[in-house]
C-alpha cells in the first residue's frame, strides 16, 4: 500500500488517489475550504480531480481562516 504524508503525518492509501479523493478520505468537507500543496508546489483548484498522489508524496491542506475580531 502506498505510503504518503498528509499534513506531516504518515498515512497509507489503498491505491493511487487524486487530490480530490484524498480530501474526501481526510474528511475535508468542501475542496474550496483548503489550499493544497503537493511536494512543495501548490495544486491549482481546477486540477484537484486530475492530480494523482503517489508513493512518498507529501501533501498539506491549508485551511482558509478568515476570523480576527
Amino acid at each position: 500500500m502506498p505510503k504518503i504524508k498528509v499534513n506531516g503525518s504518515p498515512q497509507e492509501i489503498e491505491h493511487s488517489v487524486t487530490v480530490a479523493e484524498l480530501l474526501v478520505l481526510n474528511k475535508v468537507e468542501m475542496p474550496d475550504m483548503v489550499s493544497v500543496q503537493l511536494n512543495g508546489e501548490f495544486v491549482k483548484r481546477e486540477n484537484f480531480g486530475s492530480t494523482v498522489v503517489k508513493e512518498n508524496d507529501e501533501i498539506d491542506f491549508l485551511y482558509f481562516m478568515g476570523g480576527g475580531r
Binding site: L62, Y63, F64, M65, G66, G67, G68
Partner: peptide
C-alpha cells in the same frame, strides 16, 4: 486568521 480553537 483565527476560528474556534485554530489560528494561522
Amino acid at each position: 486568521g483565527i476560528l474556534r480553537f485554530d489560528g494561522q
